[in-house]
Amino acid sequence: MGAGHSHLLHRPGHSPVHALPPHCKIAATFGFVVLVVATPREAMWAFGAYAVLLGAVAATARIPAGFLLKRLLIEIPFVAFALLMPFVAEGERTPVLGLSLSVSGLWGAWNVLAKGTLGVAASVLLASTTELRALLTGLQRLGLPSLLVQIASFMIRYGDVVTAELRRMSVARRSRGFEARGVRHWGVLARTAGALFIRSYERGERVHLAMVSRGYTGTMPMLDETAATRAQWAYAAALPATALAVCVMGYAL
């Protein structure tokens, strides 16, 4: 979390997509992904249509294709898995480039690849147009328990503080000539972890004290009441609504 709360995926901007309330975007993304997953894998053209839809969203959000493609790399482990499927799956076989591959495996691989890629691309789009903090408040508005949201917010806020503490402890260790080299030194590292836990725990108590002193009674006041307007909902719904049309046609044709 080096660069502010603009996490790794976030790309600040002022496009209409950036400006949408986070809960609208989360709901739209979720709806889109559900529809993609529900589409029969035989309707290959439908996945092309989905990709075009996402391309349109990316263009509206002014997210360059290169940025998006680079973030899609998270997907690579799934791709590897998908590529294995035609080789290992059972059942009817078909020759492809001189290799005998499983038909159901090929369909399976296509299914994983197409749906996975679309799902990841949609999530990357959401993440690159929404700040981490806004994602959390969006989830809270959509009914995620406030306690979970609080915990996640504290992780964002204190991630750096704890990391800095850890770094200071490591500097202190090394200044006294200690380098962790192998199993013999794990004891020292374990004690560091213990000390870090105690420090974090004590910090937690002091933070709690400071919160109570400012009137905290157990629930976080909901700031930034970004109630979405009907127009914003409609705008966000454009993506899942079009996807629904595609999905229905996928079944019909």
Binding site: H5, R133, S153, F154, I156, R157, Y158, V161, R203, R206, V207, L209, A210, M211
Partner: peptide, 8 residues
């Protein structure tokens, strides 16, 4: 750091 516990 104890007093300022919110993200912004």
């Amino acid at each position: 750091d104890d007093q300022l516990f919110m993200p912004t």
